[in-house]
């Protein structure tokens, strides 16, 4: 599903985030990206979603070279990817349900169908009773769950999560990992960057370790 071929990414100013990465991820796989902070985990995820473009090499998703996508094609790639951010990136001037509806509105869903799906997604992350709340009224763990609901509401085949449990207490982190396990069971491909050893031990799955922008080890 995802293929990195000799991918390097250098940022303007000379910092090399990734160096000569070759990596394949199959459909339905659960992959943990690990490594110290600054090892290139976030950059790797950004390359998959075409948020960044590789300096050299090719990143293909479903056979599409995403580094070469035109401006107009990028949004359609992203609609098939659920993105989960460490800082949630919620819109604080909209209610919980409106945040969840956003991807469906963008994809042009029928409003009634969109509401049905958004409620189902909120139910899945346990926030259905908070649908009218504003995100500011949610705890950190709840905000992260809202971010997850928004990422999966359009039922993407691929979910990318950047440090999803980074700022959370153990209890919350376990909740969220259980959700990921459920997504994995229904066939969603998951790529999760983390340095949370508990997560990896609890879930199993493939581990890809990065070290200073290169592939260090795979287990």
């Amino acid at each position: 599903m995802i293929q990195f071929s000799q991918v390097s990414k250098r940022y303007p100013g000379g910092h090399t985030a990734l160096e000569n990465i070759t990596l394949g991820i199959e459909k339905g796989e659960l992959v943990f990206l690990t490594g110290h902070s600054g090892a290139g985990k976030s950059t790797l995820l950004k390359l998959i979603a075409a948020i960044e473009r590789p300096t050299s090499g090719a990143v293909t998703v479903n056979g599409q070279n995403v580094g070469r996508l035109s401006r107009h094609a990028v949004p359609f790639l992203r609609r098939n990817i659920g993105l989960i951010f460490q800082d949630h990136k919620l819109l604080f001037d909209r209610s919980v349900i409106e945040n969840t509806l956003l991807p469906l509105s963008i994809a042009g869903f029928d409003r009634r169908e969109a509401f049905k799906r958004a409620r189902a997604a909120l139910d899945k992350v346990g926030l259905l009773n908070r649908e009218k709340s504003m995100p500011i009224a949610l705890s950190g763990g709840e905000q992260q769950r809202l971010c997850i609901a928004r990422a999966v509401v359009s039922r993407p085949a691929l979910v990318l999560a950047d440090e999803p449990t980074g700022n959370l207490d153990t209890g919350y982190a376990i909740d969220i990992l259980n959700m990921f396990r459920d997504f994995h069971r229904v066939g969603t491909t998951l790529v999760i960057s983390t340095h949370d050893e508990r997560a990896i031990q609890a879930m199993g799955g493939r581990v890809v370790q990065l070290d200073h922008g290169t592939l260090a080890a795979e287990a």
Partner: peptide, 16 residues
């Protein structure tokens, strides 16, 4: 600005 950036990340076209 934030809303624009988030919308783009989850697949909004320029037109939207």
């Amino acid at each position: 600005r934030e809303e624009i950036e988030v919308s783009r990340l989850i697949g909004a076209t320029d037109r939207y």
